[in-house]
Design a protein around this nucleic acid. Structure first.
Lengths: 224, 224
DNA sequence: TCGCTCTGTTAATGATCGTAACTATGCATT
DNA sequence: AATGCATAGTTACGATCATTAACAGAGCGA
């Protein structure tokens, strides 16, 4: 079923969908998810607002699709960052740095991606997670034995990256923790929770990344 | 200027403000910040919507005030949890546990508090931060020397808890990191990012808390 | 008592989402 | 080629919402 097999109408529809999403993402990027307005999208496309319902069931569904797209874009960015680095440790730093850069460059989009409580969105986030897992695996994660037994069992059951070889529990654990720590710092930074303190969030972030790189080097999972 | 000095009108006004906020928080708790509707508040209070503008400049200002109140309520909860524990380590666990319990019990309120990018809100969060800092200080934080010099300088300059004795940089650093890690995990949990994985977020959370308690015991700041 | 301020009202404006009813066009089948 | 259906668009409409303006009565100090 090559692209040319598509009927004229189908190709046109794809273009329209893409155009809608483009306009929608522009709104989200500049004003956040709550600023997305179907009426405004229709206006910029010289369409009537009800016409949009031919393409999306409603505002919420459009937002959900945008969140998925956003996660995929983030994943591609992380993949590129990982591919651009050479050593395992530098790859860790590169991915962590790219993650923050990306979030700071489009904070509203980051919010859209991370705080959408939709299952479909979570599954799209898996692709970013896979980048992390691979990089952590390469750097050598702590042994499974260091993880509390019940958690270890759940980690083992977790089927990450459909169709890929599974990672050991130590890698999965470290990946999850890594992700949550990076996200936590970025989330606080985006919430302006560091502005009054005079502390540079970038320094704090890099310090946390270094802590984690070190702990990987020493094969443990430890605190600040 | 005792309470009785207030004129009849002033006391009535206070009651009205409280009632408005109560109705507003109920909406936020059940549907999130975006579900807050001035019209609906007015309806439940048997008032006309424009009357609300005698008390708040608009929807945004009301939300900001709610966010501040929410932060203070969270802080009180943490203080109670800290007061209820006996040993330093158990106090750490109690505060961390109370933090998550509180967030899970009212996820929408937590979102309101944490993702409001208002300066005033951030300053209200300071009170929760102070609870953390005290508990960390009591448990014995890593030495300042372990922190990268530029970050250490900023931490030292940071004037936490107005009018209180300052904490050493090690405590401040550990407190910030602690907070961001707890918040990161909770934020992912609220975003449903663990549902597809079959991993119990509570286990992951407790494991992370234990990691940090251990690292305090050993006087280091390390990774997972 | 007079007058000002505070608190409330109704009316109106303009924006939003979403649905219904209708029209024209593309495309496939006869 | 003619017919008929799904598609993609339109206008009209109803509901909700935030916000402003203009106005009215009650509290309260002079």
């Amino acid at each position: 079923m090559p692209e040319q097999q598509l009927t004229r109408r189908d190709r046109y529809r794809r273009r329209t969908v893409a155009e809608i999403k483009e306009a929608a993402m522009a709104q989200v990027r500049s004003g956040g998810p709550e600023a997305l307005s179907l009426a405004a999208i229709a206006r910029t496309m010289a369409m009537s607002a009800p016409a949009l319902y031919r393409y999306f069931a409603g505002r919420d569904e459009l937002l959900a699709e945008l969140a998925v797209d956003t996660h995929l874009a983030l994943a591609r960015t992380l993949e590129a960052a990982a591919a651009g680095a050479t050593t395992p440790a530098s790859r860790l730093r590169a991915v962590a740095g790219a993650y923050r850069e990306w979030a700071l460059a489009q904070p509203h989009a980051y919010r859209l991606a991370c705080e959408s409580p939709h299952g479909c969105v979570a599954s799209a986030a898996q692709r970013s997670m896979n980048v992390l897992l691979d990089v952590v695996a390469e750097a050598g994660a702590p042994p499974d034995a260091a993880i509390p037994a019940p958690l270890r069992a759940q980690l083992h059951r977790w089927n990450d990256g459909a169709g890929r070889r599974g990672h050991p529990a130590g890698v999965r654990h470290f990946g999850l923790v890594w992700w949550s720590r990076l996200h936590g710092l970025i989330s606080l930074e985006l919430g302006q929770h560091t502005v009054g303190t005079g502390i540079d969030p970038g320094l704090l972030y890099r310090s946390e990344v270094e802590t984690m790189v070190d702990s990987l080097r020493h094969g443990v999972t430890a605190g600040p």
